[in-house]
Design a protein around this nucleic acid. Structure first.
Length: 496
RNA sequence: GGCGCGGUACCCAAGUGGUAAGGGAGAGGUCUGCAAAACCUUUAUGCGGGAGUUCGAUUCUCCCCCGCGCCUCCA
């Protein structure tokens, strides 16, 4: 079955066929590293992760390049405010972004590249654009001459032909021939970082980095380019202009754009107080896997309305998935197998695969797996689920999770790895959350060993008929964030 | 104003020219020392509003209303 994507360039859903059989070259616009990435950014990055995971699932070898913008007005401003050299400042947020990706189970792209490492390459491309008549110098800055690139607007579908230069913007404010022209290279200003290059001292404009780095690592034409919908114009439109003017070849064949995340129906902004980073949500005790689930559950071309109720619902849904997975692994089933269940499992597999092939319809892919879970649970309750059915169900779940990556309950391991929580050390006192003074949370948690000791004590109380004591222990553990469930095969525990 | 994405039950959210997936929440029931988990039943004659096309529209067309985004450096 072919994969179909909505291509912003054509405005239609199209069958996906990469240039090289079996291999996909993809470029995605990563963050500007002047602060922690926010959940709106991660909506797009989770979409891109689902995209690459599905392509891999379909057997494609990926060459995925993600850029990091580490030189622009924002990074320069914040680095100065922090009193740090630009590179040191941005390196901190590149590292924070790496940790956030780890927490959200985002696969690492094959290459993550920094704009500031490619200034020489950018200079060469700008020189080419000058030679070809697409760029000009003015006061030490270089601009792209939009009117020489007639296809300008083909991605964003903006028709510029009727607009007169200077009609909207006071042209005198700029040293540009036309208000629409955009900067390729910005002349050095006092107090700002600058590179000494054949173009003169200065720093790159925003768009040129992506043209240059994609060309360098993926070639002049590659398969997929993606980012948030706000990048369609001007960023991606300008990339197309620069790249195609320089090479004479199409830049990317499929353009995929994620719609924005909004919060409570409003745009997320710092002034509205509804602006959240991943760390903000972790500090409120939400699990990264639930955040990933929520961000993945709405197909990428739909606006995603983020609410805390929605996040809570995602947690509940995730529990349902994991409960079934646990039951599948741990419960004892009668020998034999059922051909009806085998058929059911394979049907669910083809349903979720078809949903993802259809422009990454994650909502439908979720429905397919929940239907399977209900049928599996029902069969188990009725004693009709057999040992021989286990491997197939397990296989389908595992396949599904190659895309969604939420099944394994390893949030605490990851939070510990990130340094956000630590195990409880003292013997007597109850673990306490400890704010670390940076808006994140370092909480102490009970160790696995402590939990298991308490569970053994409760088991003894239960066998002795001392239910009051058993319930007390269960309550104490609950207050420490540990949930107990008595099953046929013993007591299961999990972290809330 | 231009371009784009949306408006489906209490909440989130699929989908189709032929009569509304899935998840959460609520209610009742089964199971269990209790709880939790799980299962069963149940919750939209209805898919923003109006008109049209059609045997038939939530799905197509037109108009209108509302939300969100972009329109020079925001994922």
């Amino acid at each position: 079955m072919p994969i179909r994507f909505f291509n912003t360039l054509s405005g239609k859903v199209e069958e996906f066929r990469p240039l090289d059989e079996g291999r996909v070259r993809m470029y995605t616009c990563g963050p500007t590293v002047y602060d922690y990435a926010h959940i709106g950014n991660f909506r797009t990055f989770v979409f891109q992760d689902i995209l690459r995971r599905h392509l891999k699932y379909r057997g494609y070898q990926m060459l995925h390049v993600m850029n990091v913008t580490d030189v622009d007005d924002n990074t320069i401003r914040n680095a100065q405010a922090a009193g740090l050299p630009l590179r040191d400042f941005t390196s901190q947020y590149i590292e924070a972004f790496r940790v956030d990706r780890m927490l959200l189970n985002l696969e690492d792209p094959e290459l993550v590249v920094r704009a500031s490492d490619h200034v020489d390459d950018m200079v060469k491309v700008i020189q080419t654009l000058v030679e070809r008549g697409f760029a000009y110098e003015s006061d030490g800055s270089y601009y792209f001459r939009v009117k020489n690139f007639p296809e300008y607007g083909k991605l964003s579908k903006i028709d510029f032909s009727g607009m007169r230069a200077g009609a909207r913007v006071d042209a005198d404010k700029y040293d540009k021939d036309s208000a629409r022209d955009f900067a390729l290279w910005k002349a050095a200003k006092p107090g700002e970082p600058a590179w000494n290059t054949p173009l003169g001292p200065g720093r790159p404009g925003w768009h040129i980095e992506c043209s240059v780095m994609s060309m360098k690592y993926l070639g002049e034409t590659f398969d997929i380019h993606s980012g948030g919908s706000d990048l369609i114009f001007p960023h991606h439109e300008n990339e197309i202009a620069q790249s195609e003017a320089a090479t004479g070849k199409p830049l990317a064949r499929y353009w995929l754009h994620a719609e924005h995340l909004i919060v409570n129906g409003e745009k997320m902004s710092k002034s509205l107080g509804n602006f959240y980073t991943l760390r903000d949500l972790i500090a409120k005790s939400y699990k990264p896997s639930a955040i990933r689930y929520l961000l993945a559950s709405v197909p990428f071309r739909k606006p995603l309305n983020f609410t805390f109720e929605g996040l809570h619902q995602a947690e509940q849904s995730l529990d349902r998935l994991r409960n079934f997975n646990y039951r599948l692994k741990m419960e004892k089933f009668p020998p034999g197998e059922s051909s009806a269940l085998a058929e059911r499992a394979r049907a669910a597999q083809s349903e979720f695969e078809a949903a993802l092939n259809d422009n990454l319809n994650t909502a439908e892919a979720l429905a397919a797996i929940f239907n399977l879970i209900r049928d599996g649970n029902t069969a188990m309750d009725q004693g009709e689920f057999h040992q021989g059915d286990r491997p197939l169900f397990s296989d389908v779940l595992t396949r599904w999770d190659r895309i969604f990556a939420v099944l394994e309950d390893n949030d605490y391991d990851k939070l510990r790895k990130a340094g956000f929580i630590q195990e409880h050390r003292a013997e007597s006192s109850v673990p306490q959350p400890v704010p670390d003074g940076q808006g994140t949370l370092r909480a102490e948690i009970l160790s696995d060993q402590e939990v298991e000791t308490a569970i053994r004590e409760r088991e003894q109380a239960r066998h002795g008929g001392d239910y009051a004591r058993a319930d007390q222990i269960r309550q104490q553990l609950l207050e420490a964030g540990i949930v107990l469930e008595d099953t046929k095969v013993g007591t299961r525990w999990k972290r809330k």
